[in-house]
Design a protein around this nucleic acid. Structure first.
Lengths: 110, 110
DNA sequence: TATATTAATCGTAATATTGCAATGAACAAA
DNA sequence: TTTGTTCATTGCAATATTACGATTAATATA
């Protein structure tokens, strides 16, 4: 069917999976890494940096923007993107709780 | 096209996105959380715990197993699943490096 | 005004993912 | 041996994702 049954899961579980989806594609990972690395606000050379077509990059940027992980402001003909630090930290908090889970102390049985 | 162009990205970028894909679905998040919570090795009531059909759960388990995040051993007619702690920690390490990136100290320009 | 630049959007094609009914394989128990 | 239990696999349908050419919108510049 291809349709995730979100209503079967808790908000936390849906949040975690939605955050994960945000960087479940290497192009979006590359975009985010680049925005972190560049110390001036970054605009449109992501297309050169990453080897994908402009509409493709634009589409990935749109997804990241919808998730709130990045934000963009128009500057003349170009658009200036950067990390939304607040939302990034919120994501980090949610995912850290998930990743840092501890196993009950026992000898693994399998 | 629907085909990710993995060859355009670094191994690290592909690793991060592949790990993220592992829990980019709430059912897999729920499975992992349950395996963490249960203090005895877990077998097959994931189907009851989560409200999806047995083949669907089985398919999600297969993906998690292929990623190495869980492992299963056969016990009679049932299969005992648990977290592969070593690989989980490896994933945690890779993702933490990504999530803990710091922005260069500057006033946000957008 | 005309032209160039930048980036979003539209439309489309191809592949991936999700979900489940039906079936099969392995084993336990009667 | 037959029956029941548990879980994997197969096959299929529906939706989602990825990618890009063509176009559009907005602005800057000549």
């Amino acid at each position: 069917m291809g349709l995730t049954k979100s209503e079967k899961f808790t908000k936390e579980q849906n949040d975690i999976s939605t955050f994960a989806k945000a960087f479940a594609h290497p192009a979006r990972v590359a975009i985010l890494q680049h925005l972190f690395k560049i110390d001036t606000c970054f605009c449109g050379d992501l297309v050169n940096e990453i080897g994908l077509a402009q509409p493709t990059i634009s589409q990935h940027l749109k997804e990241l923007k919808q998730q709130g992980l990045i934000q963009g402001t128009i500057e003349g003909t170009s658009v200036c993107y950067c990390i939304n630090k607040e939302n990034w930290n919120a994501m980090k908090g949610t995912l850290s709780l998930f990743l840092d889970q501890d196993l009950p102390q026992k000898t693994n049985c399998c």
